[in-house]
Amino acid sequence: MTGEIDDDVIILMTGVNKWFDDFHVLKDIDFSVRRGERVVICGPSGSGKSTLIRCINRLEDHQGGGIVFNGVELGEETRRTAEIRAEVGMVFQQFNLFPHLTVLENCTLGPMKVRGASRAEANQLAMEYLEKVHIPEQMAKYPSQLSGGQQQRAAIARSLCMRPEVMLFDEPTSSLDPEMIKEVLDVMIDLAETGMTMICVTHEMGFARTVADKMIFMDEGRIIEEGPPKEFFANTKNERTKLFLGQILSH
């Protein structure tokens, strides 16, 4: 890799561009995340925020620019892709738990099949994380038997069982009923306190203020503004950012 290699930077995007057919969804994105940093990305729908984080674990591929994860350039070779994905945990808006497996089995699948852990080790690991997300008693239940908040917490535990270096959150609370949003955000705050590197796409600005080291506002495929939360909220520089914050903070 050329240029200054800052060991602390775990994700580096330079000049990243992406098209869905003709639609230019990511435009000249320069984005970096340091180890242990918590980044919150906000913006209107269609701004490309989900696409941006999905490029980090190659659920989407990019056509222009470069993405470096942990020193590895993300490209076409599929062999490295699975390895990289094991290092990046992702929590989805729709939870995406495996319905045919119990909560415990959802959590142990990755460690057992990808990392080769024994069933006993995997079970122990899974129970550890299920306790951290406060649902150890749900281990034998199937996802359809859990509430939305419990499902999302199970999904978080499932990702954490792979002991990833980075956790990506794609609007994790957007599908939840209001009374369940707090329990999931609390788990995410606990996770932030353990020093996990987190990139979160969310509209929950209260959470952002508590947890984020860096706020990013995206619109129409570009990063419009970024900065520490204090400045971002108090001294918003860009008009579009102000407009957006005005809309979502009025609730």
Partner: peptide, 13 residues
């Protein structure tokens, strides 16, 4: 989403 969830925990094809 099921495929994506599986991919995100590092499962091969």
């Amino acid at each position: 989403g099921q495929r994506e969830a599986g991919q995100s925990i590092g499962l091969s094809g």
